[in-house]
């Protein structure tokens, strides 16, 4: 892995465990993940795999009653031990998130300018004039005009609103940008625009980007490295291209096979048989064993070792040392 220079990682998650009341096993079970400044890392998985929880933990957004272990360092500081004031400072400054559905994420009753500036204005980081100037600059950076500041969300298309959302996330000049399925709620053309825009902005502002998606193809297209997540664990990690061309974990392979392709012959879409494991049941062995065509007795008894490939029987030979 090529870090451009030895700086403090934008995001450094070490052995993150997260337990919810009423669940038999941790929702996140020892997640390790880093995002260097200026780097794009994708976190891929099904619904319920824990990918959104992982990214939200970077802002200290934990579900009520959650208990945690491990550490989540943003720009070198542990989010899990922060008090409310530090957390607020983190959220208006070093880390910000772009949410899935901009229509739901932006208050329809307040103007766009209000949405963009409220984080920095209400915490006294910037005065009104400075905040407005910065908002106009960032609107320009995402390809929108300053006249939008006076508009209401209802007057904008979904794609425009997601650009506004991205501009809003950049207001505090963050070192870490979290994008939680930022294109899922958009139409296809807007999706491509938003993806291209995120790439440009990362280069221009040097922001580390953690891109959460269920779309492995999209993840490979945008990111330097990809982590595949299943049932609260990272099962495979690696450079996007290698992972896409030559998946080692049976789950990654199954996920790739389940991605609908334009060049495929028409017919039934491939799907992964079975369901992800129930949170109410404890797990022994590999979480994917029940759905895995290659599973053996060992897989049901013993949890596989850590990444790059958390599998007893990785595809294409032995778990090689990359």
């Amino acid at each position: 892995m090529n870090h451009p220079e030895e700086r403090v990682n934008a995001l450094d998650i070490r052995g993150l465990r997260l337990h919810l009341p009423g669940a038999a096993r941790p929702v996140l079970d020892g997640v390790d993940l880093t995002v260097a400044p200026g780097e794009t890392v994708a976190l891929v998985g099904e619904s319920g795999s824990g990918k959104s929880l992982t990214s939200r933990s970077a802002l200290g957004l934990l579900p009520p009653g959650a208990t945690t272990g491990g550490s989540v360092l943003v720009d070198g500081e542990d989010v899990l031990t922060m008090g409310p004031d530090r957390l607020r400072a983190l959220r208006t400054g070093r880390a910000a998130m772009v949410f899935q559905d901009p229509r739901a994420a932006v208050n329809p009753l307040r103007r766009i300018g209000d949405f963009l500036t409220e984080g920095v204005r209400r915490t006294g980081v910037l005065g009104k004039a400075d905040a407005d100037r910065r908002a106009a600059e960032l609107l320009d950076a995402v390809g929108l005009g300053p006249e939008l500041l006076r508009r209401y969300p209802g007057q904008l298309s979904g794609g425009m609103l997601q650009r506004v959302m991205i501009a809003g996330a950049l207001m505090g000049d963050p070192v870490l940008l979290l994008a939680d399925e930022p294109t899922t709620a958009l139409d296809v053309t807007s999706q491509a625009e938003v993806i291209a825009l995120l790439g440009q902005l990362r280069e221009r502002f040097g922001t580390g980007l953690l891109f959460v998606t269920h779309d492995l193809g999209l993840a490979a297209a945008i990111s330097d490295r990809v982590h595949v997540m299943y049932a609260g664990r990272i099962v495979e990690s690696g450079p996007a291209e290698a992972l896409f061309e030559r998946p080692r974990h049976p789950y990654t392979a199954a996920l790739l096979a389940a991605t609908p392709r334009l060049d495929a012959r028409p017919g039934r879409l491939a799907a992964i048989d079975g369901q992800p494991p129930d949170l109410r049941q404890d797990l022994t062995g590999c979480a994917f064993a029940a759905r895995c065509p290659y599973a053996t007795g060992l897989c049901h008894e013993e949890a596989p070792g850590p990444w790059p490939v958390a599998c007893h029987h990785p595809l294409e030979g032995n778990p090689a040392d990359d």
Binding site: F99, P108, L109, R110, E118, G119, T123, G172
Partner: peptide, 24 residues
């Protein structure tokens, strides 16, 4: 509303979240 959770995630102080996003 999701925008309330989003406002909190953007570091808007709770009192302001209630005033500007909930009461409003």
């Amino acid at each position: 509303g999701e925008h309330v959770a989003v406002a909190r995630s953007r570091g808007v102080p709770e009192r302001e979240v209630i005033r500007r996003h909930v009461f409003r």
